[in-house]
Design a protein around this nucleic acid. Structure first.
Lengths: 250, 250
DNA sequence: CGTGCTCTTGATGTCAGTCAAGAATCGTGG
DNA sequence: CCACGATTCTTGACTGACATCAAGAGCACG
């Protein structure tokens, strides 16, 4: 009975929602997942969860709150590589690689479950379906880093912003934190700048432009898609790999 | 006897050299690897090996020649995500993800071994050490995509070029195709432009500048490090994760 | 009710793109 | 082995997107 309750709770977690998009999860999978949820920890804003060069740390599953992974250049410039939202894995690669090559910092207060290499491997051996789902999710996340790279290399500031907001919206929708109308977004214009490789001033101008064009509005911590279709068109957003409904593997 | 010969050949392959940097490979590992080398194929310049949207294709291990993976934007612009050199895995992610989200094109004539998901999994179950090595190598490759992303976001054209050439040199050194003096490089200035998110014209100017500063010379298909230390300094190149000597795991 | 943040806007500067045109090099067939 | 066309490289002049500098306004928090 207790186990079933836990399973129900897990089922509603962002992590489970995300994996459900890839694989239909059986009750057995859910109970293994709830084991992964054991060691819950809390992180305050601005205190690195993981930092460059650190060795032998755990990975985390983000339960609530937002974080970002970034690198600092010798010049002091910073580039945010990825924004992490609830349901995302965090530091999965650095568990393998032993030593992390980037920093992870909470943007809001974060609750996350610590997952060791051992936890993960034992969970995988119990339910291979879960392993498939996690790898699949990890692949998608990596695909998004690639899309981000294309953003920086070959899109101008306005397209870049539009594309980023659409992608973020699609990811949040997957875990039930957004709909086609919009979503709550704790990112400051400084964070956007470091993500998109722009100056904060220019981010401001670009947001104004998008707002005045009637495409998206980002104000007071909320993103509103004023004309979703037009925005998709404008950004050259490829909906194929993000817009699916229901599990791909049943 | 035949088996030993094969093992010797494999041992000298770029693939084995690369993995050896991470894991000390036993004779058993080498013979499993030679199985992976079975289905050898040849690809002509300019004919896509993998293309966007294609499903159910194999992955490859690059035996000789160079390739690149790229994406095309609706605007027609292209961004090269990664340059692939001998020893690199190619399409590893898309085997998992079933459908590829990018194209792969040979830059020179390419010889590569086809590896199916089945091959890979059976090889892994035979020698877990090999699995570790492959995942490790894949992690490093992903780390390089991240570094490339930082390049595009926060480095100016000259630093970007310097950093790219150093990284490429380090990767080639790992498979015995470069030394600290330099390496043979079949990339045209157009390819460099699509890689670094620059125009071909500006690539030319940047190369001239680096040459006149006495840092690197890239001419007639050959990169020469005129002052390696100064270049590392100038590019803010983090040698830690590329510069190691000998296997990390023995 | 200051003291920081974050946002906003204008003025000015610069890095890199675009256009254009000629030189060098490569590949291919005669 | 040479001639030709096709790439690739090189350089200059001009343009434009985005950075930097500066300064004020709105808001949150102690």
């Amino acid at each position: 009975m207790v186990e079933r309750d836990t399973a129900l709770l897990i089922q509603d977690s962002p992590f489970a929602r995300k994996l459900s998009a890839f694989v239909r999860l059986a009750p057995g999978d859910l109970s293994v997942m709830s084991d992964l949820y054991r060691r819950r920890r809390r992180f305050a804003v601005g205190v690195d969860m993981i930092h460059q060069g650190q060795t032998d740390h755990a990975a985390y599953v983000l339960a609530s709150g937002w974080a970002c992974s970034y690198k600092i250049l010798p010049s002091g410039n910073r580039q945010i590589v990825d924004i992490q939202i609830p349901g995302d894995f965090l530091g999965l690669r650095s568990v393998l690689f032993r030593t992390s090559d980037h920093n992870v910092e909470p943007i809001t207060v974060v609750h996350a479950s610590e997952v060791t290499q051992r936890d993960l491997l034992s969970a995988f051996s119990e339910t291979p379906r879960l392993a498939t789902a996690v790898l699949w999710a990890a692949s998608r996340d990596e695909a998004m880093v690639v899309e981000h790279l294309v953003d920086l290399g070959r899109r101008n500031a306005t397209e870049r912003m539009a594309h980023f907001l659409l992608e973020l919206g699609a990811r949040l929708r997957l875990v039930g934190l957004a709909d086609k109308a919009g979503f709550a977004c704790p990112l400051s214009q400084y964070l956007l700048a470091d993500t998109l490789g722009l100056s904060a001033v220019h981010v401001n101008r670009v947001l104004r432009e998008l707002r005045e064009e009637g495409l998206v509005t980002f104000q007071k911590g909320h993103v509103t898609f004023d004309d979703y279709e037009a925005l998709v068109e404008f950004a050259g957003f490829d909906r194929a790999y993000l817009d699916h409904e229901g599990p791909l593997l049943t």
